[in-house]
Design a protein around this nucleic acid. Structure first.
Lengths: 187, 187
DNA sequence: ATGTTGATGGCAGTCACTGACATCGGCCTA
DNA sequence: TAGGCCGATGTCAGTGACTGCCATCAACAT
């Protein structure tokens, strides 16, 4: 048996979710999270850059999935379509709506957390734009397609969690894309 | 004459811009800003909610301008066009490109500041979406038009500062809108 | 005169985050 | 198998953002 209990990072994550959910983000100190996980504050900061990051650890996976889907799209596909299709594909990964709702409830209750969420999305957009440029898409087109894609995703995500839209995220993305094409074409 | 030098807030703002520009945001303490302004740290926090907010104080004006332009648009105008037209109008206010560049250089050099910038934009989007809904535009359409509008603005803003696009912000917005309509229509 | 108000100072405290150093099981190598 | 290195954790002492509370004191009203 090792010198320490296994899966320190996982225990920290779990403890953080519990406490943020119970008392709210602001009312929770890092020391409390660490204590519940049977660790020290210092160790928390070795696993997570800051108090917020524990809620956003999975975002690299989403980024990889998105970039991969964009990169792998057929050349004939228009940039916006490549992005929105990638979003649908990524949507297939995010299936646990109840978990996503709880997490979002925590985030929405705190401005700092919303800020972090937004910069993660912005990084996603930057990565997607990079993937498009790598395919030879011109700068302006790439940036705009990526940003518009994130706009679609934001709206779709919120409606998925609200229950306003389709049952699965992929469906919500499709609805939003439909609205986008309608709304930008309409005179 | 009053008990204190006039325009404390302005002095704090000026001192903050100077120091953020000279040493960078992180390397500047609030105490230093206050000292340069001839005030105390405590007073800084009476004028600004936090160390970042001093760079974003003007954003309410932009929000009012945008919301006003959206609200005042003719009913026959499609939501997206109402938003993009409002953006062009707002662009007429932001004319000092050199100042905007300096400010943006400070912001781009620091993640926390970028986070703050993003949430200000998100609030802009929420306000615009609200204005659209108030005009009877359905939820999904309003949210999407607002978010897409911000996407356009982001791209236009960056190109304006880069010097990649037109000379005035209004022109950059127009270019981005053109690209948007082309790119979302294209099969 | 006297009371009130509003912008500021002073001070103590909390908490996020960091750097430097100590600890000690497990693993590798001779 | 002895010795030594490594990596995850602990400990501790900071720094700096931000807050609450109370004091100050010119200006202004009554």
């Amino acid at each position: 048996m090792g010198r320490w209990q296994p899966n320190a990072r996982g225990r920290l994550t779990r403890a953080a979710y519990e406490l943020y959910g119970e008392r709210g983000y602001e009312q929770t100190t890092v020391a409390e999270i660490a204590k519940r996980a049977g660790l020290t504050e210092r160790t928390f900061f070795r696993h997570f850059a800051d108090k917020r990051e524990v809620l956003f650890a999975g975002s690299e996976d989403l980024q990889e999935a998105l970039v991969g889907a964009v990169t792998g799209a057929h050349e004939s596909v228009a940039p916006v379509d490549a992005v929105t299709t990638a979003l649908e594909a990524a949507g297939a990964v995010l299936t646990d709506r109840e978990f996503s709702r709880q997490r979002q409830r925590i985030i929405d209750a705190n401005t700092e957390l919303r800020e972090r969420e937004l910069i993660k999305l912005a990084r996603l957009a930057a990565a997607v734009a990079g993937a498009l440029r790598h395919r030879g898409v011109p700068d302006l087109t790439a940036s705009l397609a990526a940003e518009v894609g994130m706009a679609v995703f934001k709206v779709a995500w919120q409606r998925w969690l609200d229950g306003t839209g389709a049952e699965d995220l992929r469906g919500c993305v499709r609805e939003a894309v439909g609205e986008l094409k309608g709304t930008t074409t309409r005179t």
